[in-house]
Simulated assay, not measured.
Amino acid sequence: MILTLTANPSIDRTVVLDSELVRGGVYRARASVSDPGGKGVNVARVLTSSGVQAMAVLPAAPTDPLLSALTTKGVRYCAVPTSGQARTNITISEPGGTTTKINEPGASLTVATREELFDAVLDLGRDAAWVVLSGSLPPGIPTDWYASIVQALRDTPSKVAVDTSDAPLLALAASFPESAPDLVKPNSEELAQLTGANAEELERAAAAGDPTATVTACRILLDRGVGAVLATLGSAGAVLVSNEGAWFATPPRIQALSTVGAGDSSLAGYILADIERCSGADKLRRAVAYGTAATALPGTTLPTPEQAHPESVTVRALDSPHTSSPIPPTSSPTRSSTHS
């Protein structure tokens, strides 16, 4: 089983426009859709659609529409009761793939709810192959909460992945190596927050085929105890760095419709490959394939295995003397069977 924690879940509402958004304008939406969201929920949705047992841990009132939406999607969940309703996040999608997001802060959690969430993650996480801690923290939760959970899970067999930003990310890093997880999944801006690199320069260099600066930044985190770093760089691709090596993947050209959920899909793709004991190159390949598939889908739609095409992703080993030679896939992933 894969366990995901979403402390600040949401209903993600996407509005699709036929023209570019101009401040102060009036528009008629071409389409709109609502889905259960939050980064951990998104990871659980992708894993579930791939046939892998996943459970989303989250705070939610028993009557919250978020829970019925998860049931409709077939996602198993453990809901810690709370009085507040899940926030609504709005995404405005323009032609060409430009998206504007408006995220609510979320309902404040009491100390009792926070402690119950913590206990639920530890209890269920002991039997999980991976525990994924994703997204922002709502009011009422201290910024070092993820760091505390990572430290508490150290005595369990489960691997831990963290995908967050801003204050919770910096608080996590402040406690390295004690709070260093098995995997962190920063984008370029988050990697810059952690290492002092320049996010624009990282993406620009990678787009030109030179991910050296990104690899250097990732290795700073490895030196501080992190097991592996999956750094997503938008349309430039992604880098994976671990103690086993470093790889750079470039995606195929696509028509981008929405970037919502792309990073979460990448993380899910990595985990799918990891539980199948794939090589580092193929973990990165699957991550980029799922992230690319999400970008090619409208709104908050998340990819299925049939929509992800790892064979179309080019991967190079950066620690190899033949760095210009792409690594062919070692397997052709199909729809995953159920894993416990």
Rank of each mutant, 00 (worst) to 15 (best):
P105S: 04
E276G: 08
K101E: 15
S324R: 12
T292W: 02
E104S: 14
Y146K: 05
D18K: 09
P62E: 08
A152N: 09
T6A: 05
K73G: 00
A56Y: 01
A174R: 13
E104C: 03
L170H: 01
E311Y: 00
K73I: 00
A167V: 04
I11G: 07
L122T: 11
G299L: 03
E104M: 07
P252R: 12
L109S: 05
P59F: 08
S175Y: 00
E276K: 11
R253S: 15
S325Y: 04
D35R: 15
T48C: 04
W130V: 06
L240E: 05
R87M: 01
V226M: 10
C218D: 14
L3N: 02
V46T: 03
T295C: 15
R126C: 06
L67A: 08
K159C: 07
S32Y: 02
E178L: 09
D127P: 00
G237Q: 12
Y77S: 11
S312T: 14
T82Q: 11
S68D: 14
P95K: 08
L122A: 04
P251I: 03
C218V: 10
A31W: 12
A268Q: 08
G291N: 09
L58R: 09
L272P: 07
T314K: 06
S266G: 13
A107C: 07
A289G: 06
W247I: 02
I220S: 13
L3V: 14
N89K: 02
V80N: 03
G74V: 02
Y270C: 12
V229Y: 04
S49C: 02
S235A: 15
W247N: 02
G84W: 01
S68Q: 14
P95Q: 07
I275G: 01
P303G: 04
T250S: 15
R316C: 13
S136N: 10
T250L: 10
A217Q: 06
N8M: 05
A238M: 07
V111Q: 11
K159R: 14
P65K: 00
G25N: 04
S242K: 11
A128F: 03
S242T: 11
T301I: 08
V15Y: 08
H339P: 10
E115H: 09
V26T: 13
